[in-house]
Design a protein around this nucleic acid. Structure first.
Length: 304
DNA sequence: GACGCGTGGAG
DNA sequence: TCTCCAAGCGT
């Protein structure tokens, strides 16, 4: 859950998730629908499916026990070099390094390394530095946790708090006066526009017509009201269906997308393959993106 | 190796 | 309001 996600966002979801899936066996035997349901609103939903697949793999390949070595850990779905290092060092106390965004930043400032964080050369360098530190430390778990925590709270991207930094006297960026520019900010891809036409259709019982997205791309395997997507321009009301009326338009942003939603209600709709009417409780248990939750909240005010 | 994947808080 | 960004990973 913590991959690319702040602790404060994870806190709300972690306890309910663990309560619902209290063991690897419980998670492995759960339906993906339920896993995505508990993950709803947290974003990067592929992580949830990876974690689910990971639990299955641990049951299948490791008799239900989390493997201890980094190699085996990295063979598991969703576990890369960082997560494997975190598990090995923090869970098992083994002498394994770990590098995340925080650690790279701390190390680059410590050594006044001005290169791009995402440069493969810098990544390699960071792992070497992290490895040297963990080799020399008395407690690998504490060392790794300390590096990350320093980056998260003191050695931050901006508003750096060097005055309270416990290792300020060793910091080469500080003595060189380059802390503001080392490391340089990550280059970010320009956001592409996406037009979504979402259609609210209800049956006489007040249930809402829903469909599941494909497994690829944005919001993979998540549920939504019938939604059509275009790249160039929004659909015309006439293309949607008889009696279609615009309810609301809003913009939803993701890291790589500006998604412009037009929400329609439609009286007569030809139900397509895979589309099913679901009541509020059923929808509440499914994986639904926050953008679609917003659309569904419109249906409450419209139809009740 | 570059790209795509979510969301909301901070400043 | 707008920009930046967060305990990465797989393809």
């Amino acid at each position: 859950m913590l991959q690319q996600t702040q602790v404060s966002r994870v806190l709300e979801k972690f306890e309910p998730f663990i309560e619902r899936f209290p063991s690897i066996e419980a998670l492995a035997s759960a339906d993906e629908e339920d896993v995505l349901g508990e993950w709803s609103g947290l974003g990067y939903y592929r992580r949830a499916r990876m974690l689910h697949a990971c639990a299955k793999a641990i049951v299948d390949r490791h008799d239900g026990e989390v493997p201890r070595d980094v190699e085996s850990l990295m063979d598991l779905p969703g576990i890369g070099r960082y997560t494997a290092g975190a598990i090995a060092s923090m869970v098992f106390g083994d002498r394994e390094p770990l590098v995340d965004g925080n650690v790279t930043r701390v190390l680059q400032r410590l050594h006044n390394n001005p290169n791009q964080q995402t440069d493969p050369e810098t990544i390699k360098w960071s792992w070497e530095r992290a490895s040297a530190l963990v080799e020399a430390s008395g407690d690998p778990a504490v060392l790794n946790e300390s590096l990350m925590e320093l980056g998260a709270t003191v050695c931050t991207p901006k508003r750096i708090k060097c005055s309270v930094c416990p290792i300020a006297e060793h910091c080469q960026a500080l003595s060189a006066g380059t802390t503001e520019s080392v490391p340089p900010p990550k280059p970010r891809a320009k956001r592409k526009e996406l037009f979504c036409t979402a259609v609210l259709v209800t049956d006489p019982e007040g249930r809402v017509l829903m469909e599941q997205r494909g497994s690829d791309g944005l919001w993979g395997n998540m549920w939504q009201v019938p939604t059509m997507e275009t790249e160039k321009a929004p659909m015309d009301v006439l293309e949607i269906g008889e009696g279609a009326a615009l309810v609301e338009s809003f913009v939803h942003q993701t890291t790589h997308r500006i998604v412009r939603f037009d929400v329609y209600r439609c009286q007569s709709w030809e139900q397509r393959e895979g589309q099913v009417y679901l009541d509020e409780d059923q929808i509440g248990a499914l994986g639904v993106s926050n953008a679609q939750r917003r659309i569904l909240s419109l249906s409450d005010t419209l139809f009740t």
